[in-house]
Simulated assay, not measured.
Amino acid sequence: MKVTTTGDLTLIKKINTSIVLEAVLKQAPLSRAQISELTGLNKATVSNLVQDLIDSDLVVEIGPGESSGGRKPVMLLFNGMAGYAVGIDLGVNYIRGVLADLEGNVVAELQRSLKKHQLEFTLKELIQCIHELIGKAPASPYGIVGIGIGVPGIVDDQGSILFAPNLEWQHVELQHMLEEEFKLPVTIDNEANAGAQGEQKYGTGRGIAHQIYVSVGIGIGTGIILNKELYKGATGFSGELGHLSIEYNGKPCRCGNEGCWELYASENALLEQAAPLGFDNLEDLLDAAEAGNEEVRALFYKIGEYMGAGISNIVNVFNPDVVIIGNRMSRAKTWLEEAVQSSVTRRTLPYHRERLRILFAELQDQSAVRGAAYYAISKFFTKIKTG
């Protein structure tokens, strides 16, 4: 009885193409023979699949490599310039965007301030930014493959923002709106999740199995990576640890809770305390600390202690390898690090902190925007691999 069908063969070819492409993405430059050794696929199959990938503009030949005795092998690379992705970090008071190639390299970037939170105003600014980045894309076989956006709020699996307290938004169908505008695949996720992905893929989190990314900007969000996979919880809403209660009868929060961690350890908390000293933005505070202003340094230290208090709760619950502090406040590493570490040392269980490392984001305030671009790139690869 014959059981093999054309459909079976097509599926097998897709799977094998995916395996070959993955090998090139992760370990290039490679020869065809090396791909065969790595994947276990026979040389004839690899040769045919590589030719398909070359014909699809996804793989390029870059010339001869080192010979192991016979003819020099032709080496292969992934063609990162076959297409481009837009990544956006939609902050409470800014929009940050990048245009990245398919390897995540930044080709163009922009940033603009947001003076208002009203949806109509912000959406107009956001669309303008995306159009501007798309306009900077070089000609390529696949053009713009997608748009990824990180937002400071709770996002459902349809790309709708259910609740963004610091933007004062509820039930905004952002993915639908942008796909209507651009006719491109759009991925929306929480900004801290995007930041976690950015650091894991391109930053200080590379190769680390268990990591918690703490995004400290106007508010605080967290991206949780366990066993190298982003953990999103039962309904996709995990990571709202900025709304941990750290003061029982604390300040009221826009989320409806009281005493939330972000009210004491965020950029907003810093600015509230800095206002009597005549400061109203993070950049001036960083300059003042650098110039030796002891009052400002003391403010950063106090914020760092509160930051450490919340991180201690995270460490005691998740027992991660590393906690990565990112977003805008990561720029204050010099003035925060000692206080954060001291607070965590005092408050965590000894076995949990034994191998724990507290790091600051390698990408600093670029983690989320790079992660957002990665979402679009990843969705493109999934489409390519599955046909």
Rank of each mutant, 00 (worst) to 15 (best):
V323E: 01
R355K: 15
N48R: 14
A194I: 02
N190A: 02
K201P: 06
H117M: 10
S67Q: 09
Y375W: 03
P138Q: 09
F279L: 06
V172I: 12
A192E: 02
V172F: 01
Q27G: 06
Q273N: 13
Y301G: 11
G91T: 02
A309H: 07
G223K: 08
P29S: 12
E240I: 05
E109T: 10
L126Y: 08
I62G: 01
L226V: 15
K183C: 10
W169G: 03
L282K: 04
E66R: 15
Y142E: 06
V317S: 01
A164N: 02
Q364M: 08
R357P: 00
E305C: 14
Q341H: 12
L285V: 01
A139T: 15
V317L: 02
L359T: 09
F318E: 01
I324F: 07
A372V: 06
S47V: 03
E240F: 04
W335L: 03
P29N: 13
V86E: 03
V172W: 00
I147W: 12
G207C: 08
G91V: 03
L286D: 02
G250E: 00
K385L: 12
H131D: 09
L21C: 11
L133P: 09
A298E: 12
G135P: 05
P141N: 08
N281Y: 08
T187S: 09
Y351M: 13
S367A: 14
P252Q: 11
T382Q: 14
N257E: 14
G63H: 06
W335S: 07
G278C: 00
E354C: 05
Y306W: 12
L126W: 06
E168C: 01
T45D: 13
C255E: 12
V74L: 11
K379T: 10
Y248I: 14
G91M: 04
Y213M: 14
F163H: 14
L359K: 13
L174P: 02
I218H: 08
S342N: 14
Y213C: 11
N105D: 09
W335I: 04
Y264E: 10
T386H: 07
N316S: 10
H117G: 07
E247Q: 08
I147G: 11
G91F: 01
K14F: 03
I314W: 05
G221Q: 01
S378H: 15
R96I: 05
T382S: 11
V315M: 11
A372L: 08
G143R: 14
E109A: 13
R297Q: 15
Q211H: 10
N48Y: 05
Q197C: 07
Y202C: 07
V172T: 04
R112F: 08
A28L: 05
G87Q: 02
Q200A: 09
K379R: 14
S140E: 14
K115R: 12
C260M: 04
G159Q: 10
Q128S: 15
P320D: 06
P350Q: 13
K201M: 15
I147C: 13
C260E: 00
H171W: 10
